[in-house]
Structure formats: C-alpha cells, structure tokens
Design a protein around this nucleic acid. Structure first.
Lengths: 240, 240
DNA sequence: CCGGTGATTTAGATTAAGCTAAACCCGAAT
DNA sequence: ATTCGGGTTTAGCTTAATCTAAATCACCGG
C-alpha cells in the first residue's frame, strides 16, 4: 500500500457545508448564478424575479442567510455570497448536473426532462450517493447540456464560451451548451441533431435578432435570434 | 395501429393521489404499516412512537389527514386509512422499494445503506422516474431485503411468510426477508452470506429467546433469538 | 438641495409541522 | 358506581417560508 499523507487531505465531509433547507439552497444557487453575470451585489428584485417570490420574501431570507453566514447582506444594497455560501451553491450545482447526467445516461431520460427532476433531487441526495453516481459515470466533467460539473472539491472550470449570435459570418465553433431550463428549446435542438460537441460554422446572419444560419454536419439550419443568444459556443481563439 | 380501448384503462396519472408533503406521506406509510400488524384503528401513541414525534403532534396531523380525506379519524378512538390514504401509502412504499432495489443494483450501494437513502428520496421522485427505474430493473417484484414491491397499479402481494423463530427443528424454509431498517442486522447477515432466497434448515433451537441453529449452504449458523424473530421465511406449506 | 418614484423594507398574517404543559376523557379496578 | 391513571386532546408557542399592503429609503433630475 502506498504511503499515506492524510494531513494534506482533510476528510471530504469536513469541507461540506452544514445541511441547508431546500429554500436556502435555492437562494444560494440563484445568487451564485446572478453573480456570474454582472459583478456587484445582487439586488432584492433580481432574486425575487429569478426565484418567483415576492421581494419582501427575499428580504426576509437574505437576513436569515446573513445570520447563517452564507451571505453578506447590506440592507438596501444587496447581497454577496460568502465563501461558505459559494460552497453551498457549488455543492448543489454539482448535485444538479450529476443527476442530470445520470438520468440521461443511466435511465435514458430525454435531454429536455432531466432538468426538472434534478431541480428537486439535487436537494435530497446524500454525499455517498453523489459519489456513487459520479463514479458510475466515470467522473464526468460535463452534464448533458454541456455545463461543467464542479469537481468533488467544488472547483468549477471557468467559462470560455461566447454566445452563438456573437460570431461573425464564416467563423467556425463547437457548440458547447445551452440553458437546461427550457424544455422546448432543448427538444428543438435535439430534434435536428444539434447537441453539445457539434462542430458548426456560421454561414449567414440577419441583424436585429434575425436568424443565424449555421452549418452543422453538412446541413444548414436557421436558428432564431432568441435561440442564438442562449446557445454558447467555443471558438479556437476563445481559448487564448 | 391496434384499436384502442382507452375507456377500460384510465391514464395512470389519473389514479395517482394528489401530491402530499413528506410528513403526510410518512404518516400514511406509518399508519399503513401499523394496520398490517394488528387490526383495528391506529392509536395516537402508536403513531407517535413509530414516527418519534410528540402525541399532540399526531393528534394535529390526524385532523389534517382526515380533512384531506386520507384518514378516518375519531377523536380518542384512533384512525384508519381511507382507500385514498392507502393509495398514498402504497405509492410511497413502491417508491421506497424500487429505489432500494435500484441503489443496490445499479449503484452497488450496500444492502444496509439503501434504506436511509430511500427513506428520503421516496418522497421526491416523479412518476416518470419511478417508471424508468422499474423498467431498468426489469420490473422487479422484490426489493433487496425481500420485501414485495407494489405493482404500478398498487397491488401488493400478500404476506405468506412466518418468522424464523416459529419453525420447528428439522423444518426447511427459504429465507424471504428481514426488516430493512436495521443496518447492523443487515450487515451481520450479509457478512455470512445469508440473503433473501437462501434455503435453510433448522437444526436446533433453544427456548426463551435462545439462538436458533440453522444450516445455510452447508454451513451452520447460530442466530440470536432477537434476530430470528425479525427474519421471515417461507415454508412449503405456508403456501397452502 | 429638494422632491418624486421605484426599489426595498417593515408590519402583520398565513400555512405546515412541530413542541410543552395543562386539561380532559375512557375504561378498568376497587 | 366512583375513582384513578394513562392515553389523548387542547391551548399556546415556535420556526421556516411565504404573502399583501403600507411605510421608507435612495438616488436622479431639476
């Protein structure tokens, strides 16, 4: 048996955050997602919109989260996740994406349905089950929509993608991912064989939200402006 | 396409009971289990013991369940499940046992750990996921502890087993099942290769809770009286 | 620098689920 | 038949999470 060096590697469970309620975890996840977008503190109304609750409910919850140490909350000036809060969020995101991958892979659940199921189960699987699912799938790095899965240590590969509608005509790219939360969109893409990993080339585009014409696997598709905004692609030079 | 006769077969989902909270489902399951044991209405204290809550909490919940139509509750005289309540209970039991089977089968989770995980997840899987899990396993009839899984129509095979400690010396039987909720007991049995389906023969017994000596696969084991009370076996004539 | 407006917070209620402590009921035992 | 005790219910509180409506803040424009 190889020599052990336990001192440098604390037991996994010790890093795990204290158990949180479904609501607490959902707030952490939402704040985390909003922080990815623009910088600066997250406003009450942004959270209220995303979580579909009344603004006053958000205020109340932010106070609780601050007391729990998951959030720094300054009345009238929004909230930011603490490192602990980030850990809670990433833990839930890891659960969510692993579950999505597992449902799609092991149970052949269609691409557009895994999100809703994962949205609930993410709060209720044990760390043991998380590990078993991850191992069973060969510790995947991406979920079925192409979103990166945080590592067990909760590191998340940072985003090197841009939106499809930002590409110039003639540019080639690899379709990386699309939001997992719109079933209709997912079905549409799956229906024409466009999935993460697909190589594509922009062959034309209309301005003002007009369609983007892309060539995928030798076939041309006209993708609506709204869709092209949500599809994220990786280009050669986005790796620079 | 074959001619349809939808009238005789309502859509499955229409039979499903209204969504219930975790607590409601747990009460339904507990009442169902207690009704299996002795006949007659279930008392407040029996429920309080089993669910580990205060008796007054049970009283409050029984009122709610009565209003929800899951239970008939007569103050001071206990409660009985209505047909709807039975359906809720069986639905949860089906979830529980399918999840146990799936965790053991598809994720190699040990026999003694599946119960705790299933106890939570049973409340949160969708009907779609339930169906997929069942299909993936080939629509099993038994969970890993040998407990029967209710069918999709919520029929539950009735119990033809007796306890091991009720057998006479010399009798042969097939080990059918054991309670899923005692991990130590499960580990003990698994450790000596005694699992549901094992053929056994009683070769000796001591009275007053003394051990039962059984032969399994050519090896003799001394099983403590407490254990022998919880192990259920199927004998030839128990089928009569 | 003052006012208005929209975002935010406070105030007060509600629902589900639980608790303790006190009151109450039922049936068994004298 | 009356009493007594254990089991049950009631009363009153607590916590988490939500709501509506009212009050309040912050900041931008004049």
């Amino acid at each position: 048996m190889a020599h052990t060096r336990t001192s440098s590697k604390t037991r996994l469970d010790e890093r795990r955050s204290a158990p949180a309620s479904e609501a607490v975890e959902d707030y952490a996840k939402a704040i985390y997602a909003l922080e990815r977008h623009g910088p600066g503190a997250i406003t009450t109304s942004a959270l209220a919109d995303r979580l579909e609750v009344a603004p006053s409910s958000v205020t109340a919850m932010l106070k609780r989260l601050d007391e729990l140490g998951l959030v720094r909350y300054e009345p009238y000036h929004g909230a930011t996740l603490t490192p602990t809060g980030q850990r809670v969020a990433l833990e839930v995101i890891r659960h969510h994406r692993l579950i999505e991958a597992f449902l799609a892979d092991a149970l052949e659940m269609p691409w557009d349905r895994v999100h809703d199921e994962a949205e609930i189960l993410e709060h209720y699987i044990s760390e043991d089950l998380e590990r078993r699912i991850s191992e069973k799938l060969g510790n995947p790095a991406l979920d079925p929509h192409g979103d990166p899965i945080p590592t067990p240590e909760l590191d998340l590969a940072d985003d090197r993608t841009t939106t499809l509608d930002g590409l110039e005509v003639g540019q080639a790219a690899v379709f990386a991912r699309v939001s997992d939360s719109d079933p209709a969109m997912l079905r549409y893409l799956a229906g024409r064989g466009i999935r993460p990993g697909a190589r594509l080339r922009v062959v034309g585009a209309q301005p003002f939200g007009g369609p983007v014409f892309v060539e995928v696997a030798g076939r041309e598709h006209a993708l609506g402006g709204e869709l092209a905004e949500k599809m994220r692609v990786e280009t050669r030079d986005s790796r620079a």
